[in-house]
Write a protein that binds this DNA or RNA. Sequence first.
DNA 1: ACCTGAACACCGTTCAAGT
DNA 2: ACCTGAACACCGTTCAAGT
Lengths: 168, 168
Amino acid sequence: MANSLPDVVAAALRVLDSYGLEFCSMRRVAAELDVQPSALYHHVPNKQTLLALMADDLVSEVDGDDARSLCHALRRSMLAVRDGAEVVATASAFRLGVSGVEKQLADLVGDDGARTLLLFTFGHTQSTQTHRQASAVGAIDEDADLDASFDRGLSIILTGLTHRATCR
Amino acid sequence: MANSLPDVVAAALRVLDSYGLEFCSMRRVAAELDVQPSALYHHVPNKQTLLALMADDLVSEVDGDDARSLCHALRRSMLAVRDGAEVVATASAFRLGVSGVEKQLADLVGDDGARTLLLFTFGHTQSTQTHRQASAVGAIDEDADLDASFDRGLSIILTGLTHRATCR
DNA sequence: ACCTGAACACCGTTCAAGT
DNA sequence: ACCTGAACACCGTTCAAGT
């Protein structure tokens, strides 16, 4: 009967995916667990911390051999849940969350390159999710367009990184 | 005595700069104008629209001859007001706001280039403002570091754009 | 045209108290 | 350790009514 912290995080992610960030309130997460709102504060000091834990969970399986596949994997993880990109981007602005991915990227392309790739990946994926919700459900054509647009942006940055290192 | 729409937008920007986005509520904006909350709905249909008008106002003076100076000008405009980057980035995700800047950039570097530069500029500037508020007030050293980091990211993307066009 | 007053359906968080 | 119940100080938005 008693809930643990992972239970709370999982419930919060279910609420997020069903209703979106705007309606992912502490009260709804509590209702999802059939518990009073105040009960959540036994597991988590505040909502911000819960959101950070959700972000950690979202990116925990991100992996890849090179910078490009790492960014694509990060994008896929965030797209898997409604408003996932916004949750991860906000948490990582506060220096929680993606740190593992950031380190892997930094080893491959340096600090500035990692930062540039990460900010582009967050922004583009957030924008993808915003437009996904604005248009009718399941616009598969638009999804393919946005994936291609994302990959072209990645190419621009990666070309910049290569030429800075080898030609200048 | 009677307020106009520009009065409302100006009051909202004052509240934003003083208290931050989190506390920039319709009720506080109303109080800033010595008016009941419901009075705002005579000027604006909802909060989202007010935020979009604030974003328009923030970027209205952005101008520059080349892509780099355009991005720096955009960054400066957003940094001028507390949480300005978040307001502009969110509004532009919904296709309002920065469209003028986006068009200027697209003429200079193409659609993909404009998008990549814009998303990087939003993300980096938001991150700058987050860290500004986290650390003690007026950390001038850190501001200079972040400006330099921003410019290096810009260089990476601009190098990528040049070499894609001329060498490939 | 611009605003008031009152209401509705929500928030995050705290805290004493229960088991 | 985990939860309830009640409270506090807020939200955005609507709507009839006033001037």
